[in-house]
Write a protein that binds this DNA or RNA. Sequence first.
RNA 1: GGGGGAGUGUCCGAGUGGUUAAAGGAGAUGGGCUGUAAACCCAUUGGCUCUGCCUACAGAGGUUCGAAUCCUCUCUCCCCCA
Length: 419
Amino acid sequence: MSKETAIQAGTKNAPERVADPVERGAESSIATVPDLTRNAVDVLPEGRLAEQLKLDRPLRVKLGIDPTTADIHLGHTVVLGKLAEFQAAGHTVVLIVGDFTARVGDPSGRSASRPVPTPEEIEANATTYQEQAYKILDPAKTEVRRNGEWLDMNLADLLRLMGTTTVARLLERDDFQKRMAENAPIAGHELLYPLMQGYDSVAIDADVELGGTDQKFNLLFGRDVQSAYGKPPQSIMTLPILVGTDGVQKMSKSLGNYVGVTDPPDEMFGKLMSIPDEAMDEYFRLLLPQVEKPEAEPVRQKRFLAGQIVDRFHGSGKGREAEQAFDKVFVQHAVPEDIPEVDLSDYLSDGDGEVHLPRLIAGSFGMSTSEGRRLLAGGGVKLDGEAVDAHNLDVPAEALAGRVLQVGKRRFARLSSLD
RNA sequence: GGGGGAGUGUCCGAGUGGUUAAAGGAGAUGGGCUGUAAACCCAUUGGCUCUGCCUACAGAGGUUCGAAUCCUCUCUCCCCCA
């Protein structure tokens, strides 16, 4: 989306935003305060949000996202879900796509500067990100803006922005304190991050800004920036950071412990089944606020959780299907329905009509032949469910044609028949 | 501008001339057990045409029979002083 269309989209939506709360009436807005703060960790300053909700106008509720990765995962949906609640209460969500802030990289929770994505990556990510966010948000009540619109400023404007604070204030944040203690580098431009994010709030007249608990500093900092520009400071709300499927670290793509909202149903179900029992309560509370955790044995509860979440992102009934597919593979140890087919002829050694198994495994599952060899030696490779004898690395193609090659519990490939 | 310190495999981290593809740990993967949970046990964890070969300790040269370990230059990072 270009700058122009982004602005138009916002303008076009304006009448709907205004109409909603008028119909709802002031009392209902006040009544929604406890709901809106549910699961929140910090709602600051104390009592400010309640006052704002009495204003009887749609609040402009901001969320900034940096398109540094393409996919939204369940961790992001905690905050997005909260935004959706604001929308349901008649407020406007302003989604800031941080095409400019992505060039800096949010220092929050980072022990090192992060690599800067290329403009092309940022652009591609921004597009998919927005699409995926609409799985949760109501597009009609969402205003999407790129912060490059206003952050691509001249030096005079930047100097004014920087003059609104002090270096000491910028260094106060925990992340920087830690890095300094560890003698880790802090890049100069990282200092600017909170200023840039704060200026976003100035530019879009934010009333409320949401974020994860790791965003607390940035969110509060935005209030000061707004004040410096003569705007009423926003209130802030932080929400818990969802733990990843390992149950230990926060969910993140780079840690590989995430469940993407666009993950196929079977995969989503499987990943959710692998979370530790201790993480279940949190998953129920943060991801399915409207659903009761059933009284049952842990496996049942987890199956229910996984099914509900699949339903939420793929449509009602998909959770049940995913559960059936799951049972088929992991309980009945059957071969799943859709598995990739591998063309055996690609692996025929010249002349003798034999196939070098390590190479076949490597090619079929994207690993090195050495790794394939090791798996073979470790008894992790099966053909039609039977463990493969590791002594014969070269096997006649006829012995493989049409059979199902399996590595571990969950990687399958169907071998083509010979023509 | 001056002085000091550091760059080792996915990550952390030993190793200061000779069985070092590189201790140990984490993570990951495979096997056992199981609820694709946890815990626990075992194995593997650079690549390959694999009883061997190749490539590796920031990069490039050099010394040596032999270097991650010594020397030179380069790059990157951190700290202190100014």
